[in-house]
Design a protein around this nucleic acid. Sequence first.
DNA 1: TAGCACTGGTAAATCGATTTATCAACGTTC
DNA 2: GAACGTTGATAAATCGATTTACCAGTGCTA
Lengths: 342, 342
Amino acid sequence: MATNSEIAKAAGVSPAVVSRIVNRDASLRVSAETRARVEKLIDEMDYAPNAAARSLKSSKAGALALVVHDLTSPVYAEIIAGAQRAAARHGKALLLGEAGDLGDGQSPLERLVGGGGVDGLILQGAGTHMDRALARAARRSVPVVLLQSGDAKGATLLRMEDEKAGQLATEHLLALGHRRVGFLSVTEGLPFSDRRAAGWRRAMEAADIAPTSDWLAVAGNTYEKGAAAIERLLSAAPDLTALVASNVVSAVGVLARLRDMGRRVPQDFSVIAIHDIALAAYLRPSLSVVKMPLRLLGEEAVEAVCAEERVSHESITISGEEPLLIQRDSTAPLDVAEEGIQ
Amino acid sequence: MATNSEIAKAAGVSPAVVSRIVNRDASLRVSAETRARVEKLIDEMDYAPNAAARSLKSSKAGALALVVHDLTSPVYAEIIAGAQRAAARHGKALLLGEAGDLGDGQSPLERLVGGGGVDGLILQGAGTHMDRALARAARRSVPVVLLQSGDAKGATLLRMEDEKAGQLATEHLLALGHRRVGFLSVTEGLPFSDRRAAGWRRAMEAADIAPTSDWLAVAGNTYEKGAAAIERLLSAAPDLTALVASNVVSAVGVLARLRDMGRRVPQDFSVIAIHDIALAAYLRPSLSVVKMPLRLLGEEAVEAVCAEERVSHESITISGEEPLLIQRDSTAPLDVAEEGIQ
DNA sequence: TAGCACTGGTAAATCGATTTATCAACGTTC
DNA sequence: GAACGTTGATAAATCGATTTACCAGTGCTA
């Protein structure tokens, strides 16, 4: 690849001229002929400024990293879309990464982020080793924004109104006449999942219902684990009639297993999940959800990372959009003739 | 952030020593005390080598870019997983990007890739402007591997046995007794989709069936477009009894719409899709598919990009794993009493 | 003719890490 | 005591782009 000086030499000018032409420096005064000559050579010799050199000189990488722990989850699609849009506004490339489980300080991603290879890090963590290592590595050189959970020391923590979402989902089921409403969390101790569980508990208590501990099960974030979890849950608490699922992917597994078990949704059992993903409308039965402002979360995360004045390391709750109930076919009043049919 | 020379000064040594300690240079001879002193300072002062400087000097970015046109598609999950694994083997970070639609030569992603900000580009294109712009930008500085489609000029093109997959899917339906088998393509002119269609046609011809043009429809790659496509297809050719879907996401939309239309799957209508995604097993009915070696594709792509000697710009078909039929509940022999029931 | 502004540039320092060639000091060996 | 090897380092060039400060020449005015 051609370098700046090669172009300069070929054009008979100094590298400064080439650089300033490439960067559209308005304060540059050159004759029209010189400018044309340089531009022609840039084109012919296929010149593009070296990213490393530019970034070294300017201390700007021109990119942001968004690292999640599971790229396959459709939940991230919206976050990414929002982040993408905001990053474009700031003229930055958005690089997605998936956090492995090493976190030994030697992984290429850690080296990159820790060495200022990106201008900021947005981390959707799951409390793993790698998460912590990555956040630590980044913190010493670039702003870090944590999504939904993590140790906010030296970073900005961005959250959503998870408790309200859990509450809203539960209230919907209660309004349909359900009383024995279970809850599927993601992982024990995962902050946003715990907040949703708190919302569930609060709504239940407000309705004078005291859920016992076997009304709650851990379902992870995969189809498979969701399917296994509903089976465990119903064998521990067979008289549940409805369910709030903290993770929408696991809810899809729940629907499949319920059908396999002969429980009809929604006639025999209602299911609602947190987060609206495109798939939810195309399941049969389609899945009722509480929609959260995921896109906004992605946008705000990028804004926070770009605005970072190395000052405001706080914990912020996204409040631009309220959690929104979207009723589809997986929730309904309990069929009173329930036992007779099937 | 501390720099190399700051550490060196603090430790009373030259920057060379610091660099060689950080990089575990085996040929470095230092006293145990000096080494300990430097390592202590590296730790205390939170030193990490600057990514830009290192990459400038070494001409290695330590990262690969994998750019797809739709990050939300679950089909990429497997490709990404494979690429991730292979990248780790090569000590490179894998950065995912989504190609927007600009391609004006000014997008941050183009600048990054064109300026050698990554060591290689793997591009899963859709024939857009941006695809071409990105490939062009990258080609002048780093190796490029195209997945499944694209203009291989100056790049390596990696393909899968799409025709065989299309054929296998069709033969499965024929073996079940179906004769009027439709096909849903992704986009007109998209190479891999066309190859799958060719496989369908070949299998049909081998069975002495001549599909008419209204047995084929374009279904895109979203739930919504799949749903719309099956409706169009069945109004144009109502007597079809089975379908091969080139894109598995659109197939999910197909299943939903079929149920809404009162066509029972598989009793009245069979559906099979190309690519096995985790969701397929958790739909009800679960979705029969032809599994393709997506993970292998991801791995091979990384290998190709890393091995690239600026020589072998060819077109390679992945042949490590054969397309594999996975029969689930969405395909079955046609119910002979079809008209009587429902 | 001095003074001044404008045009069309250039020189050179700088960003931070890497790496090769070199070297001083000290002990060993013959 | 001369030659040599070893240990424990260092000096300085280099990667490529950016940017500030400066400058030579030309034309214009007072």
